[in-house]
Write a protein that binds this DNA or RNA. Structure first.
Lengths: 251, 251
DNA sequence: GGTCAGTCCGTGGTCTGACCAGCATAAAAG
DNA sequence: CTTTTATGCTGGTCAGACCACGGACTGACC
């Protein structure tokens, strides 16, 4: 059952056609008049109701779909989809494409988000947040021998930290940037998971961060988190250097 | 002179028509084959070259334009535009729309970015960065008596801090979220710029942050920056409370 | 009576061809 | 040489038609 209402704003707006239709829907999305799951009218009816031709309407709908706000499927219709972090991630990728050192830069953003998140988490985290983080810590230990699963467990742990901050904005931004780092993260793990000194250090670092969080000590939590990132960075530089040395030998 | 090249990928891709054209251009943008300022072929020629009809091509182009990647103007043509932070801001607004406490949340993100940025800036900032920040500090002092100009000077100061970090990603994210806070920031300033105790404290806080940065002391810089935000938050709560009390009296 | 297959209809997806409106350049008039 | 006009580009819009896919209904068959 289509639950949308056509309010038909003033037609004589300055921006013409497609743009007007686009902003019309976008504003309804922002205002909440259109909720996730709602089904839009058929294109032909909608075009008639809005007073534009079908191609113009389609341009607007297609744009909304590409932005991730609409789920258009042939034979079914167009459905409103709640905007998820994937949109943000795509926009970020596009914005950061011309930048050099993207990975380093995005890592800095990740550190920024996490350090702020864990401070908030020390204030706001509920018991069940701490419990789930503890469970993820166990999962991390259990998956040390598998780079892929281990990487995912690592990500899940850090994501839970951010979630415990209770800040939706931090969460969304984190979800947007983290996937960009996932690949290199797993690759690095593949180089190091055989070395007990490194993996045990990894586990210990995570545990210490968790303990500081459980003790609600923001300064200690942030300090340990930064230390964790610093060690990771150091490790990354080492592997980078040794890979260059290997290249040098081959040449 | 149109400088684009049509490489004409495999036509029998899985995704049909419009979506294919869209990803085609998006990937060229990401890969750098299309640089900012380039002019696309005319719609009719482009449609012919890509083997799709004009409406389909238009849907893709319009989507790119709405994403901010293209600048399409009647009678002129379509030009590639470098993706700016405005795209990110819009995506962020859409993603955060359903969240509660948006302003508080976004403020947390801002604190996260700035605190990380100033740490990086302590390592990386060049002399000219410090000079420009010092100049903006003077501008901030000069504009204390005007809420609007003062707010802008405040923003410019903090933006310069982030720029000094040398991280494009932090910069882009900061530019995306800061405008969301600008309005409330100026409004709060309008309530407080008459009180010398507050404004002098404000200047002093900024100065201390700058000094710590100039002395390349990351811990001190972050601590002072957090203190600056904490005081601002406290102030905000006070005005909120007194506004509620005023309401109570009226009723 | 229940189940499954075939058909029908509504949906988005695409195409063709045409016309309108803004802009730039070049040609023509002063 | 400057100003004005005319022409041709460009994107913007529209109408109508057809295709492909999905779901729902209906019928026959078990």
């Amino acid at each position: 059952m289509p639950s949308m209402e056509i309010v038909r704003t003033d037609q004589t707006d300055a921006p013409g056609g497609a743009e007007r239709v686009f902003t019309f829907f976008r504003d309804q999305l922002l205002a909440g008049s259109l909720k996730a799951g709602d089904r839009l009218l058929a294109e032909r009816d909608l075009a008639l109701a809005l007073g534009v031709s079908r191609p113009v309407l389609r341009e607007a709908l297609r744009s909304l779909a590409i932005l991730g706000l609409l789920d258009i499927r042939q034979g079914r219709g167009a459905f409103v989809r709640s905007a998820d972090a994937a949109v943000l991630g795509q926009a970020l990728t596009l914005c950061l494409a011309p930048e050099p050192n993207i990975l380093d830069d995005v890592l800095q953003a990740r550190i920024a988000i996490e350090c702020q998140a864990i401070r908030l988490a020390c204030e706001r985290a509920a018991d069940r947040d701490l419990q789930s983080i503890a469970a993820l810590l166990d999962a991390l230990v259990d998956s040390l021998d598998d780079p892929k699963r281990g990487g995912q467990a690592d990500y899940a742990f850090h994501l839970a930290l951010v979630r415990a901050s209770g800040s939706g904005a931090l969460m969304k931004i984190y979800e947007a940037i983290a996937p960009l780092l996932m690949r290199s993260h797993v690759e690095r793990r593949r180089d190091t998971f055989r070395e007990p000194a490194i993996t045990s250090g990894l586990v210990e670092a995570h545990r210490q961060v968790f303990v500081a969080l459980a003790e609600r000590d923001p300064d200690a939590a942030e300090r340990r988190l930064r230390e964790h990132f610093r060690i990771g960075d150091e490790l990354r530089r080492k592997t980078l250097i040794s890979s260059y040395q290997a290249k040098g030998k081959r040449s």
